[in-house]
Design a protein around this nucleic acid. Structure first.
Lengths: 133, 133
DNA sequence: CAGCATCCAGCTTGATACTG
DNA sequence: CAGTATCAAGCTGGATGCTG
């Protein structure tokens, strides 16, 4: 770590994402990864079964959803409830911790969604000025 | 779009990340991507030059930082201020929109950082119960 | 200093097929 | 239904070398 750089209050936390080797970086990637965020977002509204999730998160493959769910379960953000019936029924829902994280995540998502008009306008401007090259 | 699925209030927004083809999905990925989030986080504290950013975001390559910065600039989240001096000096900082987004993002990051003890404990439990396989 | 162009290893992802 | 296993393809991202 380069101790010459300025430290802000946030940097005093034991787990600092800005550090390459920090474990929080991994968890943050599970949360913000391609499917992690959407999965948490979907579960925020309530418990869902595997294939419900799959339909809800438009575009995930079976494999990716499975993988994502495992990572989130391991991190303690998602709870998996399997009923040994036939056919099998498995429900996924957020843990209290997962709920906290999802809340922040959704705030971010909604912020981005709500800004899309500006973003799209900015893109158009950017592409116009230097789009010719 | 599958209109048979339940719609929650959030789904009424014009740009819904849960939809595969939605442009907000792309922007969200710029923001939450491997380097996007850390870049926004770093700039939240103030303007930084290219190599300052590179040092601050531990692990980015030149190429990825450059790429990330372009995407964020195009989306209107980051402002690039180049001075035609020699040697060149370029400052990056957040736009008001970028600031809003970064705020939410940092809330998420800090939430995750602050939960790492729980996460790590959960991982240990998870690995212990089924780690033997 | 602030980048862009190129090359290429390897990780991620999506299809497909199969199991309990 | 709820997954796992396998494989090929494509994209990601790091290293290197060069420009202004």
């Amino acid at each position: 770590m380069d101790s010459t750089q300025q430290l802000t209050p946030e940097d005093d936390l034991a787990y600092n994402v800005f550090a390459k080797a920090c474990p929080s970086r991994g968890t943050l990637e599970h949360v913000t990864g391609r499917w992690g965020g959407l999965t948490l977002g979907a579960l925020y509204e309530g418990s869902l079964r595997f294939n419900e999730l799959r339909r809800r998160v438009d575009g995930v493959s079976e494999k990716m959803l499975s993988q994502t769910l495992h990572a989130l379960e391991r991190d303690g953000l998602v709870h998996r409830e399997a009923q040994p019936t036939n056919p099998p029924r498995v429900d996924y829902d957020l843990t209290p911790l997962g709920h906290q994280v999802a809340e922040r995540l959704l705030a971010l998502i909604h912020c981005v969604e709500g800004s899309m008009d500006d973003v799209l306008a900015s893109r158009a401007r950017y592409d116009e000025t230097r789009g010719a090259l």
